[in-house]
Structure formats: C-alpha cells, structure tokens
Simulated scan of single mutants.
Amino acid sequence: MTADVADRVVLFSGHMIDAPGRPVERFPARLVPRIARAIGDELDVTGAGCADIGLCGAACGSDLLFAVAALERHMTLRIHLPFDETAFIERSVAIGGERWVELYRRVSETATCIVADDVLGPLPPGADPFTRNNLLMLSEARRIGARAFTFVCVWDGQPGDGPGGTEHLASAVRAAHGEVRIIDIRAFADAPRA
C-alpha cells in the first residue's frame, strides 16, 4: 500500500445484524434506522468529510451502515475483507438477507476493496482471519499521515461471539493510544420503539 495523506482517518467496527435464530438479541433488524442515524451523527460530530478516509469491514449490519454514511459524506472509503470476496459474502453478508448483499454490491462499486490475503499472503495455520483483518486495518489507519485518527464502533461492551470482533479492535486501538468512540447499541435496544 502506498503512503496516503488525509485530514482524518476514521476506523470503524461494529456488530453484525442478528442472524436468524440468534438466542440473545444484540443487533435486531428493527434497530437499523436508529443505528444508521447514530453512525451518521458520530461522523458529523467528528467533522468527517471529503478530505478524510474511512476504513471498515463490510459485514451486514454496522459495517455497511458506516460505509454508506462515509460515502454520503464524500469520504474516501476502503473496505477490508479477511478473505476472498465470494466466501466473505456467503459468511458475513448473505446471512442478513438479500438486502445486505445488494448494499454490499453498491458500496463495493465505490470503495476500494482490500483483501487481507492479497496484502499479507495466505493465512498462517491456526491464525484467525478476522483478527488479522482488524490488525491490518489498524496498521493502515496508523500508517496514513492524518491530523486525527478516530475509532468509532457500534458495540454492546461485551466479548464477541468469536475472535476478531469489535471488542478485539477496540482493545487494539486503546493499546495504540487511539481515540475510541462507542455507540452503545444497548441504549438503542432498551429505548422505546419509534
């Protein structure tokens, strides 16, 4: 990857839409409009715009909502995939339904797509692709010459369902002394329905 300069880098991670049959709700589909607004509001608070770069994954739910909000603000968007696109769509996008696959396609037409295997080579035995992808995004965020670096996340503050989730990236950003801005999804889940 070449050296970049931006006014601000916004790194993002957040919960996926709940898969059908998830035993405990975390991000039910009914919260999508509220979470989308909250992400947009957070970008507005940070002053994100056309001189800025957004980095995120592209799973159904928070990632794609951030991607849309970043593109609406004319940010340069780079989506990072832990492995090849076909497998990623099947594993992390299609489980939310066709609407999310269509949204992924629209976003990926405008964004730069970075596949971890293309940058880092094949995944070593025993390594987790999502953890590696988080660290790649953080490395890129720190490498970019920017006036400000912010990590925004949609998170319930709890450990994830597996390795390499939002908790992992939030911990890695804190360890690197980055700013962490949390959109606490629990506040939306507990609020009365609109």
Rank of each mutant, 00 (worst) to 15 (best):
A87W: 03
A48V: 12
E85Q: 11
E42T: 15
R105I: 05
C56V: 09
G61F: 12
M75Q: 05
A69R: 11
H80Q: 03
E98Q: 14
E102Y: 08
A59R: 01
T46E: 11
G49W: 04
L71K: 03
V93P: 05
A48W: 01
L64D: 04
H80G: 01
V32C: 08
C50G: 14
S62W: 02
D41I: 06
L64R: 11
G40P: 08
L64G: 02
P33Y: 07
V45P: 02
A36Y: 02
S62R: 02
R105F: 06
I89A: 07
H80S: 13
P33Q: 12
T86D: 10
A29H: 09
P82M: 03
R106K: 11
R73D: 04
A38Y: 00
T76N: 07
E42A: 14
A69V: 01
R30Y: 14
G61K: 11
A51R: 14
T86I: 10
A36H: 08
L77T: 02
A48K: 05
G40D: 15
A36R: 15
R34N: 10
H80R: 04
A48I: 12
E90S: 15
D44F: 00
V68L: 05
A87D: 12
T46I: 11
I95W: 13
R34G: 09
H80N: 08
D52V: 06
P28N: 00
P28Y: 15
F88A: 04
V32P: 04
L103N: 01
F83T: 10
V101T: 15
R106H: 05
A38W: 02
R105M: 14
E98L: 13
R78S: 08
G40K: 08
L81G: 06
G40A: 15
R105Q: 08
P82N: 13
G97K: 10
Y104G: 10
E72H: 02
C50P: 14
E98Y: 08
R73P: 12
I39R: 07
I35A: 06
L55D: 09
I89H: 05
C56Q: 10
G61E: 06
F83D: 06
G96M: 09
A36K: 14
G47E: 09
L31K: 12
L103Y: 03
A58C: 11
C56R: 00
E98W: 13
D52K: 00
E98A: 15
A51M: 09
L81A: 09
E85C: 00
D41S: 12
V101F: 09
D84P: 14
C50W: 07
I53S: 00
R106T: 07
I79C: 10
H74E: 14
D41E: 15
A51G: 15
I53A: 07
A70N: 06
C56F: 00
D44Q: 07
R34D: 07
I95N: 02
F27K: 01
R99G: 13
A87N: 07
I39Q: 05
V107M: 04
V68G: 03
R91P: 13
A70G: 04
I79L: 12
I53L: 10
P33D: 15
L55E: 01
G61A: 10
S62C: 03
D44K: 06
G47F: 00
